[in-house]
Write a protein that binds this DNA or RNA. Sequence first.
DNA 1: GCTCACCTTGACCCTGACGTCAGCGTGAGG
DNA 2: CCTCACGCTGACGTCAGGGTCAAGGTGAGC
Lengths: 121, 121
Amino acid sequence: MLRIGEVADRAGVSVRALRYYEEQGLLEAERTPSGQRRYPESAVGRVRFIQQMYAAGLGSADVLEVLPCVHTGVATPAMLARLAEQRDGIDRQIAELTQARERLAEIIRIGERHVPADAAS
Amino acid sequence: MLRIGEVADRAGVSVRALRYYEEQGLLEAERTPSGQRRYPESAVGRVRFIQQMYAAGLGSADVLEVLPCVHTGVATPAMLARLAEQRDGIDRQIAELTQARERLAEIIRIGERHVPADAAS
DNA sequence: GCTCACCTTGACCCTGACGTCAGCGTGAGG
DNA sequence: CCTCACGCTGACGTCAGGGTCAAGGTGAGC
């Protein structure tokens, strides 16, 4: 059983973040009689997953929706549908980003043609 | 010369957003003697570009940095460097998203194996 | 039994990209 | 002249994902 600081260190997040996740219902912890949180080792991976989902632009509610499937390894059809929805959302985001990237790349190409004399600066 | 509402409609953003962009120095407008904003047609495209950059995760300051190149079509080497930096940032984001997507997709595959009997629900 | 690092809750602070409301001016049609 | 949609500024609200500070409890070593 890990203490909150250890989980934070191992997962690379702040203690505050872990308490916030708990507040959002994303992460449970057992408590010692005095009230201190104790986490299983698996919590570290769980936190990393949560971070990854946040990075993918999901909000706490979305993560909360998909977490049960991760946790249990099984999923109802409804859960699968939600997961697929999130995956498609990410796909849409990737598409948007790719477009933006192309846009920038094109601007760079144009700009390079207008400043061709300068090779190394 | 377009009024603010028209630009907002055509670009698919709110009037408030346009005023905010102006506040951030991203979008200029002429003013009628009474103070109303008047935009050239080109503003619509400009706003769309701004939106695309926001969608790519750039902040107002970043957009402000890269806009001159778009506007003028030319770029100093320093500008090119900034553009390239933003492009690379987007690339990193895409990589992260792709990872998250794969993670979700895997969870879906696992889940599907655990609920294979149910085909249409 | 003392110390000191670690933990607790609660409360307020922050940034970004707007939403929203108030109170008022503007301008084109009937 | 009246109306009514549209525009203006300024100020405050919102939401997420935490940071930070305060005031105190806990627990393992010495």
